[in-house]
Structure formats: structure tokens, C-alpha cells
């Protein structure tokens, strides 16, 4: 097992993503950050904090995708996680979805469906900490912390201070 990103690297990546979000959206008029629980939600909160330190107040929320997964029938029922929209909602907003790892793309497909239930955003963008390749659907990220070429039998483990007690991104070897 080897750490690919450490705490400082994650901070740097999130700072860069924050600047890219500002640049791409010409300031932050009607931008909303929506994190996908568990870890995406914490990353969204961190991005909002960085944007705030740069002088921009951005609404942040969470979006649970469980009810829209395409693999529900393959496992026992999963508990639902939190969906919490910011007060202004998402109608007509520029929504930035935030997740930790982009892999098959199925989570994001489910997130797009979940978003459709809640309203009609003007645009949807995607920010991920790690893009590890092996897409199974035509989905790409707009903001990537780190492109990480992996073999499909490896797994990528993102640990965050808020849930795991420390920050790191590791590749654990072939199972």
C-alpha cells in the first residue's frame, strides 16, 4: 500500500479546483456545490471553505444517490444517506457535483438522475478528487484533483480527516 496523495497534496488539489471553478463560472454567480455522501459531502464543504477564504460565499448541500443506483438488486438494501439542498435550491443554478473517486461513472449517472428529481439546474459540472479511469459510461469530470492510472483490480482508498481521522489517497494492491 502506498500513499499517492497526502494531506498537503489534497489541500493543493482542492485549492486549484476552487480557482478553476471560479474561472470557469466567471465569478460564482448562482453556483451551488453538491457533495455525494459520505466523502464527497466533506470535500464539497472544504471547497466551500476555500472559496469563502477567497471571498466567495457559495451554497453547499448534499445529494444521496442510493435510490437511483443501478446495482440495488445486487446487494441487501442500503441505508439512505443525507440529501440536503441549500436554501436557494438548485432550480436554474450551476450545480457542481463533488465526489471523491471517479471510476465506472455509475455513481454520477445515478447522481444526475437524483438531481433531475429535485429540479432543473442550468448546468451540471463534476469535480472529483481522483479520476482513476475505467469508465463504463460516457461521463467525464470537469475538475480533477489527480488523474490516477490504475489497474482495474486495484482499489483506491480516499481517507478524510472528518471520517477517517487523517487525509490520504492510497492504492491498495490487486485483490
Amino acid at each position: 500500500m502506498s500513499a499517492i496523495l497526502e494531506s498537503a497534496d489534497i489541500d493543493r488539489a482542492l485549492k486549484r479546483i476552487s480557482h478553476e471553478i471560479i474561472e470557469r463560472n466567471h465569478g460564482l454567480e448562482s453556483v451551488v456545490l453538491l457533495g455525494i455522501p459520505t466523502r464527497g459531502a466533506f470535500l464539497a464543504t472544504r471547497l466551500a471553505q476555500i472559496l469563502k477564504s477567497l471571498g466567495n460565499e457559495v451554497p453547499v448541500g448534499t445529494l444521496d444517490i442510493t435510490m437511483h443506483r443501478d446495482d440495488l438488486r445486487l446487494r441487501p438494501p442500503r441505508p439512505l444517506l443525507s440529501t440536503l439542498l441549500p436554501p436557494g435550491g438548485i432550480e436554474g443554478k450551476h450545480v457542481v457535483l463533488v465526489d471523491d473517486v471517479l471510476f465506472s461513472g455509475r455513481t454520477i449517472r445515478a447522481a444526475l438522475d437524483a438531481l433531475g428529481e429535485l429540479g432543473r439546474p442550468k448546468t451540471v459540472q463534476l469535480a472529483v478528487l481522483v479520476d482513476r479511469g475505467h469508465r463504463e459510461l460516457p461521463i467525464r469530470a470537469d475538475y480533477v484533483g489527480k488523474n490516477l492510472p490504475t489497474s482495474s483490480n486495484e482499489s483506491v482508498k480516499v481517507s478524510l480527516l472528518e471520517v477517517d481521522g487523517h487525509d490520504s489517497v492510497e492504492i491498495t494492491g490487486a485483490r
Binding site: M67, H68, L72, S82, T83, L118
Partner: peptide
């Protein structure tokens, strides 16, 4: 509790 939150939006239906 979570279901109540997600079904108070404009679309009350879930595909599950």
C-alpha cells in the same frame, strides 16, 4: 426521514 426530504420536491416519484 430521508425519504420525506427527497419526496417533498417537485417530483415525488423515485425509480427504486
Amino acid at each position: 426521514t430521508q425519504l420525506e426530504k427527497i419526496t417533498t420536491g417537485p417530483t415525488k416519484k423515485l425509480p427504486t
